[in-house]
Design a protein around this nucleic acid. Sequence first.
RNA 1: GUGGAUGUAGCUCAGUUGGUUAGAGCGCUAGAUUGUGGUUCUAGAGGUCGCCGGUUCAAAUCCGGUCUUCCACCCCA
Length: 458
Amino acid sequence: MSAQKPSVPKGTRDFSPIEMARRNYIFDTIRDVFCRYGYQPIETPAMENLSTLLGKYGDEGDRLLFKILNSGKYLDKIDGKALAEKDQTGITRLISDKGLRFDLTVPFARYVVQHRNDISFPFKRYQIQPVWRADRPQKGRYREFFQCDVDVIGSDSLLNEVELIQIIDDVFTKLEINAVVKLNNRKILAGIAEVIGEAENFGHITVAIDKLDKIGIEKVNEEMLAKGVSRDAIDKLQPILTLEGKLKEKFPKLLEILKDSPTGLEGCKETMTVMRHLKDLGINAKFELDLTLARGLDYYTGAIIEVKATNMAMGSICGGGRYDDLTGVFGLEGISGVGISFGADRIYDVLLEQDRFPDAYHASSKVMFVNFGDEEVKYCLPVINRLRKAGINTELYPDAAKMKKQLVWANNKGIPFIVMAGTEEIKNKKFMLKDMNKGEQEQLTEEELIKKLKRLSQ
RNA sequence: GUGGAUGUAGCUCAGUUGGUUAGAGCGCUAGAUUGUGGUUCUAGAGGUCGCCGGUUCAAAUCCGGUCUUCCACCCCA
């Protein structure tokens, strides 16, 4: 038997203890903030029916869905004609009816519709789970990654938008990441498309102007022209794209531009209301109106939110927006929701690159007892038990191995304290406590040992 | 899905125009030190050169395919 080289699928990763400690630091921080604002956790299955997922993320999203092959004799359903014509979409529908979830928002909408009778609206939920995308991996882009979603569903109030941005601010303040929150509104974008006379090209226009800071205005114009946007409309768009200045100056200009579009004016008003609240609250993060912020997901209808870490060549670390009709496709009309999603894996990469992980987080147990043999173990075990009951993370090395091996092991594991109890200590009813960082050691009674370690565990 | 780069010891990387026994540092194991780790010294183990095939007397080295990782596009957390 030839040994196969072990590996994990492309774009997926193992997480070792040190990585888990850091990841849990992120999850714990985010979860704490979510709870502080009264959001409640739910979980949904890794897989959903394809009918739930398809058509919610645009064509690109459908392509990136991982599909799960049906069980049983799935080939029986396929006729030779479809195979001969290589009708991939048609065949896929026949052999796969489940897929891995692509995000947490669509499964949440499904959940809300399904459990509508048990939910009292507005419903505030959070959800921290992995999602999967069949994308080609790159820096900060994985095929399996964790999203931390918070959503309010069943409330139109703009206070929800404000609250979500407060949550963003709290999370990144706690994680010590300098973040800038970019805001826009689909209604503003729709209004712009309307006033330049290209309402039907809304999609093409937003996709193109989304790339403005990346490829420049020339290429954006080229792309729009190629997609069938008229020269005249592109000319009209230029002053809007290059709108500069402070918010105070931007909004009056925008209101003037959008004066013939009720939708656009409404989006503008909404964004102004949200920003006014934010200004009054005085949040730490910078926030700005970014008219080029579009976001590809099809279901957004109102506010669009995106967060980037400053000074980092990385995609957004948090994103979201308002969706008015998402539950409608599952048969529950008139329920509007708004939510955001923190990308835990990208936040991890930012924290690692900026060296912002607290050291204390990777510690395992506080103290390890050296194993000298049966007699000594018998002496130590009850004390170890009492240390644990006192809330001190304690472990005993399982084998009576050489002292050196046991100390190296403790050292590698980052255990800060060692207890040695051999014949001498047993005779005196004492314990030798060694501080691994300072190299100092002292003999203590059990009572003193517990007291000291308890103090050091704070 | 499109285009480009990459892969040598557990890790980071050398390796000449194709040539005989593929190296270094770190890590690992043992000893110096039988109850003291993280420093030092000494010794040792560890590689079908990503995988499959081709060219050649001869391939880590050249060619083709494939997979991985990375970069750009697309899109996105």
